[in-house]
């Protein structure tokens, strides 16, 4: 990807704090270019979901952004008034969530929910939206789309619900999709199908994806770029192939050694060494010491 192509998503030095002043994002910078999948990988509490939420403008009220910019296709979200910001985010981004059941309204049929979303976001009429939805259900390889459209969420399997949400995410032709652990709750065989679908649609539509996951296996298969996150700080950033070839940061190396591999049981599942954690703590402390928010 040449450098002069404008990124779909550009996050520059983003810091966020909790009401008690504790930093939860530490000068995070990352970008996702058109047609690219960037994985955001880290353990629980690393802040990976929070970055996704910041992009989509749905951070919890307790988290306050104190520094940094987020640009979607060159437009600085911080410079827009709330209404314009919501409109921009709605039109150019979409979310594939971890748990499709909580993302869908349990008391409405799948078809009505999907159509409404397109009508609301893009101002399409119902007929056009209906046509588009059927086209996307076909793309996610749902054969009996008639039945699915008439179903309530609980009547579908987990894999089928995730297909529906992938269709919904791509239907409005967003430029950027935030995929937040979209396969974590699924069985491995279903996970593989869903990852395949996401990759296929991503290529066909040229969409940029910020792919949040805790699983380095998924990172290796789905992404071209990767940011490794620890305690709200990007500790390593690389092309995915390069990261697996030669991980630079001790934490990345430890995470790789901890990830289970059935092909190599005794070289994997290694507990993270105390010295690595001590090193990380020192790195975070040093970064916090040096950090002065530009405005407070």
């Amino acid at each position: 990807m040449s450098v002069n192509v404008e990124p779909c998503l550009d996050i520059r030095g983003l810091s966020a704090v909790l009401p008690n002043g504790q930093r939860v994002l530490r000068s995070v910078s990352l970008s996702v270019h058109p047609g690219e999948v960037r994985a955001l990988v880290g353990e629980s509490g690393a802040g990976k979901t929070m970055i996704g939420k910041a992009v989509l403008g749905v951070l919890p009220k307790s988290v306050r952004i104190v520094e940094g910019e987020m640009l979607i296709e060159g437009e600085d979200l911080g410079r827009l008034d709330p209404k314009a910001r919501r409109t921009l985010i709605g039109a150019r981004t979409a979310l594939i969530p971890q748990d499709p059941l909580t993302a869908l309204n349990p008391s409405r049929r799948i078809g009505a929910q999907m159509i409404d979303r397109l009508v609301r976001i893009l101002g399409w009429n119902g007929e056009k939206a209906d046509k588009r939805i059927r086209q996307l259900l076909d793309e996610v390889q749902i054969r009996d789309s008639e039945r699915v459209l008439k179903s309530y969420p609980h009547e579908l399997s987990g894999g089928m619900r995730q297909r529906v949400l992938i269709a919904a995410a791509f239907a409005a032709e967003p430029r950027l999709i935030v995929a937040d652990e979209p396969t974590t709750a699924l069985d491995v065989t279903v996970q593989k199908q869903i990852l395949r679908l996401i990759a296929q649609l991503q290529r066909d539509h040229g969409t940029a994806i910020l792919f949040v996951t805790h699983d380095l296996g998924v990172v290796a298969k789905i992404s071209q770029k990767v940011s490794v996150l620890y305690a709200g700080k990007v500790v390593e950033e690389a092309e995915t192939a390069a990261l697996f070839e030669a991980p630079q940061h001790p934490y990345t190396r430890a995470l790789m050694a901890a990830t289970p591999r059935y092909t190599d049981p005794y070289a994997s599942l290694k507990p993270v060494d105390e010295t690595v954690l001590a090193g990380l703590a020192a790195e975070i402390a040093a970064a916090d010491q040096a950090w002065r928010p530009r405005h407070d």
Binding site: V188, T189, Q191, K192, L195, R196, A199, D215, L216, G217, V218, V219, A220, K221, I222, T240, A241, F244, E245, M256, T259, R261, Y262, T263
Partner: peptide
């Protein structure tokens, strides 16, 4: 089942 596990290694054919 084994083939569906995404191992943490690069494999362009997997998907």
């Amino acid at each position: 089942l084994l083939a569906a596990i995404p191992l943490p290694e690069i494999d362009p054919d997997w998907l």
